[in-house]
Design a protein around this nucleic acid. Structure first.
Length: 512
DNA sequence: TTCCGACAGTGGGGTCGCAAT
DNA sequence: ATTGCGACCCCACTATCGGAA
């Protein structure tokens, strides 16, 4: 298959908002793909490279190359060239990668160049990723979309399933079963603004502590342990303590879901930054493990003794978990029979926060494990802080925000009468707010370099955030975690905004 | 007809590791 | 030795489509 076909379909898919039309376009393309094209066409259409990331970013791609007049590249040829590119390493590798990319781009037409650029930078933005590809696959083969989706979740990979179903038909989907040793996409949670709201929604539920660490899926098959992240990357080699812990458990074959986190000597959780730094360390794991040991804390069992538990209600899965995993290695929880017991749930949240954790996850007792879904059966509740800050500048948006001032630079007052930038946010604003702030900030503009528009510090905005973290980037030595806009405060003047001093006082656990 | 679940888009900060300087 | 870049952790929120109620 020619790359130009893919690039055309991608453009058409991006041009339509209707999901049904996107699906039909992908289905038509899948039907035309040859068997050997499939392992490439599928990930490309889902906006991914089969090789994963290649170490090619905006810097390497920064030099435009004159496009070819006629399309000639095949999908498989592109894939082969990118595989070569991925193998380049060592001194001089960056220049060599740039050369290879330039060569490839030179063979591509303008439309193909745009498509490749999106692929290489992970920004295809055609409004069709995995979910639409799954539907398209079902339509192309006559399979039940639910069966295709389930197979993808269990295989942890779209292309494996695509190859099977396009080559052998819907019957092949049956062989994708939960298998110890093969990672499954984890179930995710929605947010709720209070435990009361969450319990009202779910009824009988478990309220569990939410640890601020790294999500892990631990597989043990006899003497073999494998540890995967939320995106199914294998991080076994970085976490010897977790492997050891899994070997201590009273089971030979299982899949557990949990969080890995570092506790200090007093048993208090270390900051996310410390845990993440440890889990990210690959070079001297033994030393990292000594300095910042981590512990696995489990909250679900997907398989035990090779038995698939996914469709069992949470109550039963948890009973299996409790049989296998001793209490200290399980997440703390309380079972809440119904809305009349909301005070119990609230006490549990308060207690969890007092012990230094992030919040709670409220889980319906009767819900199955919805692998790969952001199911409504799990609701996270975290405390939200708010501040009144001053807009110091704003950045021009991209994509659907092109032409709008989007990303706000936020400042808190300093003792000298100035402002210290605490971070940025583009979250929480509606289209109406986006339009309003674009107008307003243009009136206040003092400088526009085409990227950042600096403004007179006069506009006050209420910002919600999850907490403070240390920062080497910002002048106060701290930055807001997950800042988002709540509303503009036109009733407030900049001198009414919050101060850095007050912010630091409100978060004594974080020192700049 | 209205509601709501699922999904994509829009990017945020930090840390690590590698290559370049 | 330091700096810059890319990958990959954590993540909130809104808009939109299309099926469910």
């Amino acid at each position: 298959m020619l790359l130009t076909r893919l690039a055309q379909v991608s453009r058409e898919v991006a041009a339509t908002a209707a999901r049904s039309r996107k699906i039909a376009l992908l289905a038509e393309l899948f039907r035309d793909a040859e068997a050997d094209d499939v392992p490439v066409v599928i990930p490309y259409l889902a906006g991914r490279l089969p090789q994963g990331r290649l170490g090619v970013g905006w810097k390497v791609l920064g030099h435009p190359v004159p496009p070819a007049a006629e399309p000639s590249l095949t999908v498989r040829e592109v894939d082969a060239r990118l595989s070569e590119l991925g193998k380049v390493s060592g001194p001089g590798s960056q220049a060599e990668r740039a050369r290879l990319v330039g060569e490839l781009m030179g063979a591509a037409t303008e439309e193909e160049q745009r498509f490749l650029l999106g692929l290489l930078t992970g920004e295809v933005r055609q409004g069709a990723l995995d979910a639409v590809a799954v539907e398209g696959l079902a339509q192309a083969t006559g399979a039940d979309p639910a069966d295709v989706r389930r197979a993808v979740m269990l295989a942890g990979s779209l292309q494996t399933v695509a190859r099977a179903v396009l080559g052998e038909g819907p019957g092949s989907l049956e062989r994708f079963r939960l298998t110890v040793g093969r990672p499954v996409l984890p179930m995710l949670a929605h947010s709720a603004s209070s435990v009361a709201e969450a319990v009202e929604k779910l009824g009988a539920c478990a309220v569990e502590e939410k640890l601020d660490g790294i999500r892990v899926q631990v597989h043990r098959d006899g003497d073999t342990v494998r540890i995967h992240t939320r995106t199914l990357d294998d991080i076994t080699d970085r976490l010897p303590e977790v492997t050891a812990a899994a070997m201590e458990l009273r089971g030979e074959r299982f899949i557990l879901d949990g969080e890995v986190i570092s506790f200090d000597a007093a048993g208090r959780p270390r900051s996310f930054q410390e845990t993440a730094g440890r889990v990210g360390s690959r070079t001297d794991v033994a030393r990292a493990a000594e300095e910042t040991p981590v512990s696995p804390v489990f909250f679900d069992a997907l398989a035990v003794d090779g038995r698939d538990l996914l469709d069992l209600p949470f109550t039963e899965r948890h009973a299996e978990l409790a049989r296998l995993v001793p209490e200290p290695m399980r997440v703390r929880r309380t079972v809440v029979p119904g809305p009349e017991d909301i005070p119990q749930a609230e006490r549990f949240l308060a207690d969890t926060l007092a012990r230094g954790h992030e919040g709670v996850v409220v889980k319906a007792l009767d819900a199955p494990y919805s692998a790969g879904r952001r199911g409504a059966a799990w609701l996270k509740v975290k405390p939200v802080h708010t501040l009144d800050l001053v807009v110091l500048a704003a950045e021009w948006g991209h994509g659907r925000r092109t032409g709008k001032l989007s990303n706000l630079h936020l400042g808190a007052r300093t003792p000298d009468g100035g402002f210290a930038m605490l971070g940025k946010t583009f979250k929480g604003m509606t289209d109406a707010m986006l339009a309003w702030q674009t107008e307003k900030l243009r009136e206040l503009a003092v400088e526009d370099d085409g990227w950042v528009v600096r403004v007179r510090p006069e506009l006050v905005v209420e910002i919600a955030y999850d907490g403070l973290q240390r920062s080497s980037r910002y002048p106060a030595g701290v930055t807001l975690r997950f800042a988002r806009v709540v509303r503009y405060r036109e009733d407030k003047r900049p001198e009414d905004a919050d101060t850095v001093e007050a912010l630091l006082a409100a978060h004594p656990e974080v020192t700049p």
